[in-house]
Each structure stands twice: as C-alpha cells, then as structure tokens.
C-alpha cells in the first residue's frame, strides 16, 4: 500500500513530485515504488486481457504486459538521455528513467481504471476483433495521457536550461513518437496478449505481418469488409 501512495502524489501533487525528481530527492524510493505498482497493475490488466482465451493465456499475458512496457523503456531510455544531453540537459540517467517510469505508472493506473470496462465487454461480447480493437483503444488513450505526464515532467525537471529548452521539448516529442513505434513493435513481437479463439494457447506467436496491418484488418472485419485469416 505504501508504494501506491506515490501514484497519489503523481496524480495530485505532480508539480512537487517532478520538482523532487529535478532535485534528485528520493529518486531510488520513487523509482522502486513506481516500478512495483506499475508491474502489479500491468499484470492485472494483462490477466484480464488473456482471460478471454484461457487461464494459461491469462497467466502469460499477466507476465508479458509488464515485460512489454519495461522492455520498451529499456530500449528507449538511452535515446532520450543522450539526446537531452546533446541539447544541454544536466539531468542524470536516473532522473530520465524516473520520468519515464512516471509515464509508465500513469499509463498502468489508467489501464487499471479501464479494466472493469474491458472485463464487462469480455463477459458480454464474443467478437474477438472487437475485443482486440477495444484494447488497442484503451492502450492508446492511456499511453497518450502517460506521455503528456512525461512532457509536463520534462518541462519542470529541465526548467531554466537556457536557450536549449525549446530544443529539448522537441526532443521529448520526437522521443514520444519513437516510444510509440518501439512499443507497438514490441507488443507485436510479444503477442498474443488476447489469444485468438479457435487456436490453442501459445506463449509467443510466429513473427510475420505487422501491428498496423493487423489493426487495419481487424477494423475491416469489425465493419464487415474482410475476414481476417
């Protein structure tokens, strides 16, 4: 429960929270608390997603969803740090990681808040493509809100850096696009998270196709234009 208070601080008192990150106050504790709570929330949401297929899929998705976000963070963290450094930032890598963990934590909280809605649709509808698109929508909304926290936090943490502040803001937004691309490809690599009905449980599916083509195909099937094969 103690770790969850960090979420309350982020949501209610974000300015002070980011200022403490800027000053390097309690970075390790903050990062640990954010890591623990976000992993727990992602795992829960993953279990809800996977329940549409089987218990094994629920367990698999509960393990893979935290992995998805943390792996994306690990892949993208050096880019943000070194680009910021290049534009005059004096932040440490820990501060950058703390900011990214804030993004992930906010995303996880929003996903958790969507979980009852997703469970409702899981129990009352049977169309796989609809359920998949519903989850894509939920992830998109939660992710966008999460990265706006990163942008806001970066403004506070890098405040007073002189002329390069504007350049660093641009870097942050470019990094957010990169984060979205890496995240979607990572999700495609680690799929399935929902599990296709009619197919046996599989931990990972063979590579092939791509995330965006699959989403368009799903939209096509939901609207009745094509059958996904």
């Amino acid at each position: 429960m103690k770790d969850l208070t960090v979420i309350e601080t982020i949501l209610r008192d974000r300015k002070n929270f980011f200022q403490e990150i800027r000053e390097g106050k309690g970075l390790a504790e903050k990062m640990r608390a954010m890591l623990v709570s976000s992993v727990a929330f992602f795992a829960l949401y993953g279990a809800v997603m996977g329940s549409s297929h089987s218990l094994w899929q629920a367990l698999s998705s509960a393990a893979k969803l935290p992995l998805l976000f943390l792996a994306t963070l690990v892949v993208c963290a050096p880019t943000l740090y070194f680009f910021n450094l290049n534009f005059g930032s004096n932040q440490s890598l820990s501060q950058n990681v703390a900011l990214m963990l804030t993004t992930i934590t906010v995303t996880s909280v929003l996903l958790l808040s969507f979980a009852p809605v997703v469970t409702f649709f899981l129990l009352t509808t049977s169309q796989y493509q609809f359920f998949k698109l519903l989850n894509v929508g939920v992830f998109t909304i939660s992710g966008i809100v999460g990265v706006t926290f990163l942008s806001y936090g970066m403004r506070i943490v890098s405040y007073g850096g002189g002329e390069s502040v504007r350049a660093r803001r641009t870097v942050v937004w470019l990094w957010i696009i990169l984060y979205a691309f890496v995240g979607s490809q990572m999700a495609w690599t680690l799929r399935p998270f929902v599990g296709a009905p009619g197919l046996p449980f599989e931990l990972f599916r063979q590579l092939g196709g791509n995330f965006y083509a699959n989403i368009f195909a799903s939209i096509g099937e939901v609207l009745g234009f094509v059958t996904v094969r």
């Binding site: 329940s51 009352t124 049977s126 796989y128 009905p197 197919l199 996904v228 094969r229």
Partner: peptide, 16 residues
C-alpha cells in the same frame, strides 16, 4: 468452460 470463454464463439473465431 469458464465465464470468460462462455460466449458462443462462431463470430469470434479467427480463421487460421
């Protein structure tokens, strides 16, 4: 069968 998979799945099937 679980509650989560109890809905008829004809329309939910992925043809693979």
């Amino acid at each position: 069968t679980t509650l989560a998979t109890a809905m008829p799945d004809t329309r939910a099937m992925v043809i693979r």
